[in-house]
Computed example of a mutant assay.
Amino acid sequence: MQIDTLSPDIVARPQETPAGQDAVARQLNERFADASPQEILEAAIHELFPGHIALVSSFGAESALLLHFLAEVDRSVPILFLDTGKHFDETLMYRDILAGRFNFQDMRAIEPDLAAIAQHDPHGKLWETNPDLCCQLRKVDPLQRALGPFDAWITGRKRYQSRARAALPTFEYLDGRIKVNPLARFTAADIEAAFKQFKLPQHPLYYDGFKSIGCKPCTLRVADGDDARAGRWAGTDKTECGIHR
């Protein structure tokens, strides 16, 4: 992590240890406790981690809002899309729609290692028998490789999405990097209002009952009143793909 770029009013030079980086995350959360998503993005991109931060987008049900805020701040920030080979066609279409709307300068499709897929999932059915390994091969490992040049990355997670995310901070430290969650405090009502305010296009599957959209084999419609992510890996005890722990 390029800690020298951190603002001196946060900390002069944090320790290159997990405890030191956790302390940085805590101080950032205090500093930006009442900040807007645009203010958080502006600071993270131009002050804290200039040239060393990326945004990871699934181009799922709520992705347009974070991308809208990013476009207001800096269209040159790299956008990483985990192209697992298992997405809905509608997701790939939505990605292209949003890319055209916001005209980002650096969009990267991150694909799994073909040799690893050939070894562990030659028939493309690993999701049925070992969804954790499937996610590891198609999401976790490719993302770790793609994040190599970056000291921080931006996610679109929110506290309201599931019980597991209820205490999500705006800044967190994990695996040697700071993760930035500019929409952590947003509620479902906030998201809906923002989509209307900014006239953002919705994912084609959203109005068909898909409130959180991942890979096609592991995503179901969500019943009214359920967590937004209840349709992800339904029928298993799995709630996250592994890139967020």
Rank of each mutant, 00 (worst) to 15 (best):
I97Q: 13
I97K: 12
I97A: 13
A99W: 02
A99S: 13
R101E: 10
F102N: 10
F102V: 11
N103E: 15
F104I: 12
F104K: 09
D106L: 07
R108K: 14
A109R: 12
I117F: 07
A118V: 08
A118E: 14
Q119H: 14
D121F: 12
D121V: 11
D121N: 09
P122N: 09
K125R: 14
K125W: 02
L126M: 12
L126T: 14
W127H: 15
N130K: 02
D132Y: 00
C134I: 07
C134E: 06
C135A: 07
L137M: 08
L137Q: 05
R138T: 06
K139D: 05
K139N: 08
K139Q: 09
V140L: 09
V140S: 04
V140F: 03
V140N: 04
R145Q: 15
A146V: 02
L147D: 08
G148A: 15
G148F: 11
P149A: 09
F150D: 10
D151H: 10
W153E: 02
T155W: 06
T155A: 13
G156N: 06
R157A: 12
K158A: 08
R159F: 06
R159L: 03
Y160F: 15
Y160D: 07
Y160G: 00
S162Y: 02
A164T: 11
R165N: 02
L168D: 03
P169S: 02
E172I: 10
E172C: 12
D175G: 13
D175P: 07
G176P: 04
G176E: 04
G176M: 09
R177Y: 08
K179F: 02
V180F: 01
N181Q: 05
P182Q: 00
P182C: 02
L183A: 07
A184M: 03
R185P: 09
F186K: 01
T187Q: 08
A188Y: 04
D190Q: 08
D190N: 13
E192Q: 14
A194D: 11
A194P: 04
F195M: 13
K196N: 12
Q197C: 12
L200S: 02
L200W: 01
Q202A: 15
Q202N: 14
H203N: 09
P204L: 08
D208A: 15
D208W: 04
F210P: 11
C215V: 01
P217V: 14
V222D: 06
V222E: 06
A223F: 04
D224P: 07
G225R: 01
D226K: 11
R229D: 06
R229I: 08
R229Q: 10
R229V: 10
G231W: 03
W233M: 01
K238F: 00
T239K: 13
E240I: 02
I243T: 03
H244I: 03
